[in-house]
C-alpha cells in the first residue's frame, strides 16, 4: 500500500522553483494590500493635504514604523510557514523603529507647552484609529490565511500572530495615507494598538484557521 503511494508520489514529481514560499506569501500580502488600499482610498479617502504631507518627517516616520512591523511579521511568517523553521532574531527588525518612535514620543511630551500633552496623545481620532487599522488589515489577513494553509506551519499560534503582525503593519501603513495625525505619542500608542489587534486575533484563531 505504502509502496503504491511512493510510486504514485514519485511519478507525480515536478521540479519545485526556489523561493516559492516567499513568492506565495508576497503575492498574498500584495493582493490583500491592494484591496485594503482601495478600501481606505474609497471609504475613508486619502488625506487632503497629501501634497504638503509628503515633505513632513512624520509622514515618512509613520510609514517607516508601520513598514518595519509589516517586514518583521513577514520575515517571521516566512520562517513559521516551514516545519522546523525558527524565528530567531527576526522580530528584532521591529526593535530600532519602535525604540525611535517611543523616544520621539517622550521627547515631544517633555517638550510640549502645558495642556498640549493631551492633544499629542489623543489627536482627533484616537478612538477610531485602532479599529480602522484592524478593519483595514482584514483583506490582508484573509489572503495570508489562504497562503499559509497551502504551506506547512506547525506552530499555529505563533504563525497566526506573525501573520496578524504583518497584516496589521501593512494595514497601518495604508491607513497612514488617510490619517493626518502627526503626534509621535499618538502613533506610538494608537497605531501600535491597531497593529497588535490583528496580531492578537491571529494568535487566538491560528490553531483553528491554519490547520492543514
Amino acid at each position: 500500500m505504502t509502496d503504491d503511494l511512493i510510486d504514485r508520489l514519485s511519478s507525480d514529481l515536478r521540479p519545485v522553483r526556489t523561493g516559492g514560499v516567499v513568492v506565495r506569501l508576497g503575492l498574498a500580502l500584495s493582493a490583500g494590500g491592494a484591496v485594503a488600499f482601495i478600501g481606505v482610498a474609497w471609504l475613508l479617502g486619502l488625506r487632503p493635504d497629501m501634497a504638503r504631507a509628503v515633505s513632513s518627517g512624520m509622514f515618512w516616520a509613520k510609514l517607516a514604523y508601520t513598514g518595519a512591523a509589516a517586514t518583521a511579521g513577514f520575515l517571521c511568517i516566512e520562517r513559521l510557514s516551514r516545519p522546523a523553521g525558527k524565528v530567531g532574531l527576526r522580530l528584532a527588525w521591529l526593535g530600532l523603529p519602535l525604540a525611535s518612535l517611543v523616544g520621539a514620543a517622550v521627547i515631544q511630551l517633555l517638550d510640549v507647552a502645558p495642556g498640549g500633552g493631551r492633544h499629542l496623545v489623543m489627536g482627533g481620532s484616537a478612538m477610531v484609529c485602532p479599529g480602522y487599522i484592524a478593519a483595514t488589515s482584514l483583506p490582508v489577513c484573509l489572503m495570508l490565511i489562504w497562503a499559509l494553509r497551502g504551506l506547512a506551519p506547525v506552530r499555529l499560534r505563533l504563525a497566526g500572530a506573525a501573520a496578524g503582525l504583518a497584516a496589521g503593519g501593512l494595514a497601518a501603513a495604508i491607513y497612514s495615507l488617510h490619517c493626518p495625525e502627526s503626534g509621535a505619542p499618538f502613533v506610538a500608542i494608537w497605531y501600535t494598538l491597531g497593529i497588535l489587534l490583528p496580531a492578537a486575533a491571529g494568535a487566538l484563531a491560528g490553531p483553528r484557521l491554519l490547520r492543514w
Binding site: 516551514r82 504551506l151 506547512a152
Partner: peptide, 12 residues
C-alpha cells in the same frame, strides 16, 4: 509522506 510531497516547497 503525502504532506512531504504536497508541501515540499516549504523545505528550506
Amino acid at each position: 509522506l503525502i504532506a512531504i510531497h504536497k508541501r515540499r516547497e516549504t523545505f528550506d
